[in-house]
Design a protein around this nucleic acid. Structure first.
Lengths: 102, 102
DNA sequence: TTGACTCATAGATAAACATCTATATGATGT
DNA sequence: ACATCATATAGATGTTTATCTATGAGTCAA
């Protein structure tokens, strides 16, 4: 993971509305409407943030009929954190517990 | 770690220049001048980013005479990642390897 | 096919941000 | 005290971003 990818990951996390979204659909698929309501933003704003999160690979999109559901890609989050830790906290033993090898 | 704190952490990571800085002084204290040169920005710009990183708790500042040295606070980075993972990737076993309990 | 419903996109706007130059602050040696 | 050096702050500027309203696109049932 290079500097640019890491910055994309950070940017995706670096907004309160997106944090709210990530926590809301971390364990269950949620529709855009539900997400907008929970995050207290309009539906287009929710779509905007979801596009950013999907671009960063942090959520998966699934369409069923006219409904679109999003859910956090938990393993991607773990991988991003792991790579980040190896780059900027390499001396911490715990950092390496997220590697693929262990 | 609430949504706001998590967003501050993400914002701090979400810039290429700051990524470069974090990687450069992750394992050694570096002066502002060295950091500015490595990151290819002016000294005031480096100071600006270092202030953001310090505000987020990701680097420590140490002054010796007229020199000021910054270094990544690796354990803070691990803690932030750990809390983040617990919040948005709670079903991943690896996420919990960063907890204080293990 | 028409209408209703869900989501995405376009366009506008205000706020936040990254960067620079110029200058202030603070420490050190003469 | 003064000159010098390293860093911080102030102010300006152009870019990015978060948000909204309005509208387009796709799906489904009647």
């Amino acid at each position: 993971m290079n500097e640019t990818q890491a910055a994309v990951f950070g940017k995706a996390l670096g907004d309160v509305t997106r944090q709210r979204i990530l926590r809301f659909c971390c364990c269950q698929s949620k529709s855009v409407g539900e997400i907008a309501e929970q995050a207290q933003v309009t539906q287009p704003t929710a779509s905007h943030h979801l596009a950013i999160l999907e671009e960063a690979g942090l959520v998966n999109r699934e369409q069923h009929g006219k409904m679109v559901y999003y859910q956090v890609n938990q393993s991607a989050v773990v991988n991003c954190c792991g790579e980040l830790l190896v780059k900027i906290a390499p001396n911490q033993k715990k950092a390496h517990k997220l590697c693929d090898c262990c």
